[in-house]
């Protein structure tokens, strides 16, 4: 059943609607039912989660008898951003993932954020699906704040991703949806996969397989599920960042999610005006390239790759 969890009047004959679809077992909601919430579209240019929302519900509906708990699907937390191909909230130029937990008496974005938190609160698990941005491609991974490691790593291992990155805590990240929910006891996992403005179907299918595995563990799904792949789990110290030292056009020499040796060529930054190479980029370590620059134009400092040692 489609429900509206927040509605805000726009000036000219339109309403901003934040909607979810709730799937419940055929025999209703008697007894204590577990709930999983799938959230995506906080950043309007991250679309990988759109396919996941569709595919998850398609598979549930194809075997509805196996549903034993509640599945809430929120495909568009920032619907104006998705519609207008805008990463932030149009009209405010605001990163929506920096305003949680929101404030009911605040501005429109803060009000909407508070309604979203109210509605998600109490879920047994929340999956917040991101898709990097237009600049970088990511392998399917889950990012976990070290403060929530003990609660979330067991859930993350079920989600069939390639990689779990336990990162250090930063004050600025306390304004994210995931942090705001975890701090009130609603376990929330952040998925990053693919690249902005695109849908990578194989990644979506991979994650949906994992969501069913988690649902089974939580008692929300009774059907057959895959055995999740064993993810690599790492902490900050094992991740090397490669940033551009020069501006220009980046052309990679490696493939995404492939092993590299220290000194291997990651790619070149080219100068299309002079026909010269502005910078040759080499791997600082042995490891695997789990983030790779997708958008070719780079400035000094642009992230080129992340390598897991």
């Amino acid at each position: 059943m489609v429900e509206t969890i927040a509605s805000v009047g726009l000036p000219i004959d339109e309403k901003l609607l934040i909607q979810k679809n709730r799937l419940i077992p055929k025999n209703g909601l008697k007894g204590d039912k577990k709930r999983i919430s799938i959230v995506t579209g906080i950043h309007g240019d991250e679309l990988e989660g759109q396919y996941v929302c569709y595919e998850l519900q398609r598979r549930i509906k194809a075997n509805y008898d196996n549903l034993t708990g509640i599945v809430d699907v929120y495909p568009a937390i920032n619907p104006l951003g998705i519609d207008s191909i805008t990463r932030g909230i149009p009209g405010f130029d605001l990163d929506m993932n920096r305003i949680f937990p929101g404030f009911e008496n605040g501005s429109m974005p803060e009000y909407v954020a508070s309604k979203i938190i109210d509605d998600l609160s109490g879920s047994n698990a929340v999956i917040d699906i991101h898709a990097s941005n237009i600049f970088l491609e990511e392998i399917p991974q889950i990012r976990i704040n070290e403060l929530s490691r003990d609660t979330l790593v067991p859930y993350a291992k079920l989600l069939n991703v390639d990689y779990i990155w336990v990162h250090s805590s930063a004050t600025v990240l306390e304004s994210t949806l995931a942090y705001s929910l975890n701090v009130i006891g609603t376990p929330t996992l952040v998925v990053e996969m693919g690249v902005g403005m695109r849908i990578t179907k194989k990644y979506g299918d991979q994650l949906v397989d994992g969501i069913f595995a988690l649902m089974k563990k939580l008692g929300i799904w009774n059907g057959d599920v895959i055995t999740p792949k064993e993810p690599i789990i790492s902490e900050d110290g094992e991740v090397s960042f490669i940033n551009a030292g020069k501006s220009g056009v980046f052309v990679p020499a490696v493939e995404h999610w492939k092993n590299v040796k220290k000194g291997d060529r990651i790619g070149d930054i080219l100068n299309p005006l002079t026909g010269e190479i502005n910078e040759e980029i080499f791997s600082p370590t042995d490891g695997i390239v789990f983030t790779l620059r997708e958008y070719p134009i780079v400035s000094e400092g642009s992230l080129i790759a992340r390598i897991l040692a």
Binding site: L16, G91, S107, M108
Partner: peptide, 8 residues
């Protein structure tokens, strides 16, 4: 000149 509802 034009405003959303919920606008301070």
């Amino acid at each position: 000149p034009i405003i959303y509802s919920q606008t301070p």
